[in-house]
Amino acid sequence: MTATPQLSLADGLRQLRLSDTELWNRYLALGGTGDLHQLRDHVRGGTCPDRHDHNIIAQALNDAFVDEGHDHAVAYHDLYRRP
């Protein structure tokens, strides 16, 4: 990783142009246990995800960035600086 990731979950999802369902499938594959509604709330900031869920969602998004040939862009829980 060349730079500290700065994107929020929502920004990463928008940039990747993944559907909520695509992200949810990636999240589940990494061990996430929330339902699709909970994932949407976490990503869009309706509820504050705990550190573990945030990091699983961030990892799912970062894996998608890597799949597209990019670096990890989405910040993990302890690295994200909210505006």
Rank of each mutant, 00 (worst) to 15 (best):
R51A: 15
G34H: 14
N25V: 03
L61Q: 00
R51Y: 10
E68M: 11
G69N: 07
H37L: 12
L7H: 05
R51L: 09
Y27W: 11
L7E: 02
D53F: 00
D63A: 11
L18F: 15
D63S: 12
G34L: 11
V66F: 07
L39Q: 08
D20R: 05
L18R: 01
G45S: 10
G34S: 15
T21F: 13
G32V: 04
I57F: 01
T21S: 12
H42E: 07
L28H: 14
P5K: 07
G69E: 07
E68I: 10
F65P: 01
D63N: 15
V43G: 01
L18C: 11
H54S: 06
H37Y: 12
T21Y: 13
I56W: 01
R40V: 08
V66K: 13
T33K: 14
H52L: 05
D35G: 13
D11L: 09
L39R: 00
L16P: 01
E68Q: 14
L30K: 00
D50R: 12
D67P: 02
Q59F: 02
G45R: 09
E22R: 03
D11F: 03
V43K: 03
A29W: 08
S19Y: 13
G45I: 14
L28F: 13
G31A: 06
G31W: 01
Q6C: 08
E68L: 10
D63M: 09
G46C: 09
Y27F: 10
L9Q: 04
D35P: 12
H54Y: 10
L16F: 10
L23H: 01
A10C: 11
H42T: 03
D63H: 09
Y27Q: 05
A64F: 00
Q15V: 08
S19Q: 11
H42R: 08
